[in-house]
Amino acid sequence: MSVDPMTQDWSEVEAALEKAFSAAMQLYTERGFAGQFGFGRRPAVVTIDLANAWTRPGNVFTCDQRKMNEEIIPGVQRLQKAARANGHPVIHVTTAYQNTNPKDPNSDLGIWPAKSPLLEMKQSDDNELWKIDSRIAPIDGERVIIKKNASGFAGTDLHNYLTSIGVDTVLITGVTASCCVRATVQDALANGFRPVAVKECVGDRIPAAVQYNLFDINAKLGDVRTVDECVDYLSTINMRNI
């Protein structure tokens, strides 16, 4: 009898990983890894793929619903509220394709369908899957960026936009930890931004994938900070002399 990874108890796996990561982090720190970039002068909140295909149940991309409903959505709501109240940009990144016929040479799918069921992500008015979850929907004037690759930076104008408004710190939320969030963190670093993965606001289909990737991001690619820390930063950065 097969076990549904979306509903099985992962607590033993997570406890074992926590123990292993504690020892691994000691090794990393002894060798000079796991430093901190710290918060900069000008932040932006970026959500990655918090669209209905990932946030709502019953879809091929659906992520862990307990974490989504109890941690990610409430946490992103707090970040958005703090950012908007203090004049910091909120940017929404989702995945969609104009031509989902993989046999058409004009398709914008690339070779992704060989690995992922992206035919579901048709960019059309009657397809709700690619649209940002209504609980954290954009308000008037906020940017919605459509990507076609894992990273929010790859093939989009996210880098140019952040640079044009003086952003140096990117608070990254969304799914999945093992793919699109991780790729966005890596590209943020490569493009000269301070990447911060917001701990409670990053998800995946398998809880252990979140745990591992946040550990690895914190060791080598970006900072992992709590939603409380990030909300405080968004709320007070305008009053600080950095």
Rank of each mutant, 00 (worst) to 15 (best):
V76H: 04
V170K: 05
E30K: 13
E70L: 02
A154M: 08
P117A: 04
T156K: 09
Q65W: 03
V202G: 09
T184L: 07
P57D: 02
K122D: 13
E14Y: 00
R66S: 03
E71F: 06
D104M: 12
L214M: 14
D9Q: 09
N191W: 05
D104T: 11
P138Q: 06
D104A: 11
K103W: 01
I48K: 07
A177G: 08
Y212M: 13
R240C: 02
R143L: 12
G58D: 07
A150Y: 13
S107D: 05
N52Y: 15
D126I: 12
L162Q: 06
I72F: 01
I237K: 01
Y161D: 00
V76D: 00
F37V: 04
P5L: 05
V231F: 06
L50M: 15
L109Y: 07
R56Q: 14
V60Y: 03
V46G: 10
D133A: 09
I242M: 13
F21E: 00
V202N: 10
N127W: 13
I206V: 14
I139N: 00
L171Y: 11
V46N: 08
P105T: 06
V45D: 07
V45R: 10
C201G: 08
T95N: 07
N127S: 12
A183L: 03
C180R: 05
G152K: 11
K115Y: 15
R78A: 11
W130E: 08
P195A: 11
V196Q: 06
P57L: 06
G152L: 07
L79T: 07
G155S: 04
G38Q: 13
R41E: 14
L158Q: 07
A150H: 12
H159D: 15
I72T: 14
P89Y: 04
H88C: 08
V13M: 00
E200L: 05
G75F: 01
R205G: 15
V175G: 09
T169W: 08
D108Q: 09
T47P: 13
I217F: 15
T7S: 13
K122T: 14
E142F: 10
K115A: 07
E30L: 09
L17D: 02
Y97N: 08
V185R: 09
S107E: 02
R194T: 07
E128W: 09
L79R: 05
G222V: 11
A20H: 00
A183F: 04
V167C: 15
A219D: 01
I91S: 03
A51M: 15
D108C: 06
T47A: 10
M1N: 10
E200A: 08
G110P: 10
E229D: 12
F37D: 11
E12F: 01
A209N: 07
N160C: 05
E18M: 01
Q26M: 00
R31G: 00
Y28K: 04
K19M: 00
L234S: 01
P138I: 06
Q211F: 06
N86Q: 04
F33C: 03
A114D: 01
Y233I: 03
I145T: 04
A197D: 10
R42N: 10
R143E: 15
Y161E: 03
A82G: 02
K220V: 06
E18L: 00
P43C: 12
D104G: 11
H159F: 02
V231I: 07
I91A: 04
M121T: 03
D223Q: 14
C201V: 12
R84M: 04
I206E: 11
C179E: 04
L119K: 15
A137K: 14
